[in-house]
């Protein structure tokens, strides 16, 4: 499997525990760069001051650290631009009760 796909697959195992939706479908991942075994992720959360800040950001880091061939994972959080609901996937919207 392509390393980028593998990373995204791993990121889909990290859920926002309040919403029960993974960080990729929620549209929290702004940027993903992979080079020479180093991963850089720029992400956000649904709101500044999210009580689950440390849990989710730490979870993203932990989910990628054990991938074979990965030496370093750097995760940064930004509020600029702020997250908007338009970033969510159709699956995320379905889980939130849309389309029903």
């Amino acid at each position: 499997m392509d390393i980028r796909e593998l990373v995204l697959q791993q990121l889909r195992t990290v859920f926002d525990p309040e919403l029960g939706i993974n960080v990729v479908d929620l549209g929290l991942i702004y940027d993903l760069q992979i080079s020479d075994g180093n991963i850089y992720i720029l992400m956000t959360l649904t709101t500044p001051g999210c009580p689950l800040h440390d849990s989710i950001v730490g979870g993203v880091k932990r989910a990628l650290e054990h991938i074979d061939g990965i030496r370093d994972v750097k995760v940064e959080v930004t509020w600029n631009p702020p997250w908007t609901p338009e970033r969510m996937s159709e699956e995320a919207l379905r889980q939130l009760g849309h389309f029903s």
């Binding site: 990290v14 525990p17 309040e18 009580p51 849990s55 989710i56 730490g58 993203v60 932990r62 990628l64």
Partner: peptide, 22 residues
Amino acid sequence: PFLWWTHRYSKKIGKENVPTLK
């Protein structure tokens, strides 16, 4: 539930399956 979840599962998220707050 949030407080206890943070205590029990915060460091496990990303490593293993953890329950949702619900």
